[in-house]
Computed example of a mutant assay.
Amino acid sequence: MKSLILFAAIFAAVSALPRGNDTEPKGWYVPVKGGKFQWVSRDEYENAPVPEMRKSAEVKFYLYTKSNPTSPKQLYLNDKGTLSSSNFRGSLPTRVIIHGWENDFKSAVNTDIRSALLNIGSFNVICVDWSDKSVSLNYAGSKNAVPDVGRQVANFLDFLSAQGGMSFNKLTIIGHSLGAHVAGFTGKQVTRGKVNTIIGLDPAYPLFSYSDSSKRLSSSDATYVESIQTSGSLLGFLEPIGKAAFYPNGGKSQPGCGIDLTGSCAHSRSYQYYAEAVQRNNFKSIGCSDYNAAVKNKCGNSFSNIRMGTGYGNSGVFYVPINKKSPYGTG
């Protein structure tokens, strides 16, 4: 019976979603602890008083390099001494990984992508931890903390530029779920340059508006923004977020996830696919006329020369075929 109720709830959520970029949903099914959802109407959310935060989230930064691939060095904003004694090298490309709700810097999104990067080259890999439970224990509170977390990450990157010689031209920020929107707010708030690349891994959908790009990750937050969208209409956005938007298996559900009622499996696949793409460059794509064609797999059968996860500078909407198990890429 519980499964039937949850299925009915999710069906209602999907039926409330926008049918085009010029409309908005009536509300969202918002994730709560225990893998459940709670319906929140748009009016209820927009008219509710914003809870006063007791303090800003405590955001921590952990550095990994080829010299310390598994033992992080914690870095601190405006602490030049700690920075100079670390393995951070301004001449290297910098990769920043930002987790989502109920995760931390030890979560799989960080370990999978960090390992993939350091397996292929030399990088400054910085895992951001914004799991501060004193700010919020629920999704809505964490969502409200996103702009401030983005501000703190932006300040830290400005510090790395000023004191560590980091080049914004060699900077990529990779964010999953709510972390994708943190990446967007980071790009909006840096002051010493423009972020080169943001990779949005299934950017979180509940409580966000597609029509207001100032309050979510948008294609203007970096020189190049790529989105990999895997649980559209539930935990992630269905509409294209990035300058290049990739829709694995159509972007709503993923092969091998079974009856994925909560969408958690499909949501996690976004970072698993990206980690694989970093190492294998094996996700072929088909160009689509729009995102509706990608969702329905009606983009033809001619592969483009653009591959998901490695397509810097490209634009458009792309359908990506997916295998049921690793390796997920078909190329």
Rank of each mutant, 00 (worst) to 15 (best):
V182A: 10
N297I: 04
N301R: 10
R54A: 15
K284G: 08
G179T: 05
K252G: 00
L171D: 06
S131Y: 01
S67K: 15
P321W: 00
A9H: 08
S131R: 02
F185A: 13
C299K: 02
H176G: 06
E276N: 07
N138M: 05
G309M: 00
R54P: 00
A140R: 04
G20P: 04
G193K: 04
Q38R: 15
N301T: 11
L201P: 03
S56E: 12
Y76K: 15
M53K: 15
T23E: 14
V190K: 11
L118C: 07
A245D: 15
K170F: 12
P31R: 02
S253K: 11
S107L: 03
I5M: 10
K26P: 02
K2E: 12
M1G: 14
I174S: 06
Q189F: 13
V40M: 06
S167D: 14
L117Y: 15
K36N: 13
E24Y: 07
P255V: 03
A222T: 11
V96M: 08
L77Q: 09
G242A: 01
V59G: 10
P18V: 06
N138W: 01
H176L: 08
A8K: 08
F105I: 10
P248Y: 02
S264R: 09
L160T: 13
N119V: 05
P248R: 00
N301F: 11
R89E: 13
Y328S: 01
F303M: 03
E102W: 03
V295P: 04
A57Y: 07
G300W: 01
C127T: 13
P25N: 04
A294Y: 07
K298V: 09
T111L: 12
R95N: 03
G141C: 00
A9Y: 06
V125E: 09
N138T: 10
Q254H: 00
A116I: 09
K194M: 07
G179P: 07
R42Q: 11
R19Q: 11
A244F: 06
G311E: 14
F303H: 03
C299H: 00
S91M: 09
N78L: 14
G316K: 02
R89I: 05
F303S: 10
H176A: 06
K170G: 04
Y291L: 02
N110G: 05
S264A: 12
G256Y: 06
G121S: 01
S134M: 10
H181F: 06
P93D: 07
V195R: 00
S142F: 04
A204G: 07
G34T: 10
A180D: 09
P31E: 01
V125G: 08
S107F: 05
K298W: 01
R95A: 12
D79K: 11
N119A: 13
N297E: 09
L238F: 07
V135I: 14
Q279A: 10
P25E: 11
S268H: 11
H99E: 05
A244H: 03
F208C: 10
I322E: 04
G187C: 05
S122G: 01
Q189R: 13
Y274N: 02
A57F: 09
G329Q: 01
W130C: 11
P31Y: 07
G200W: 08
K133V: 09
F159E: 14
T94P: 10
A277Q: 02
I97C: 08
N144R: 15
G164H: 12
I120H: 03
P206S: 05
L63R: 06
L6K: 15
F88K: 07
V182E: 07
A9I: 05
E24L: 13
V320K: 01
I10V: 15
Q272I: 09
G200K: 04
S233Q: 13
K36Y: 12
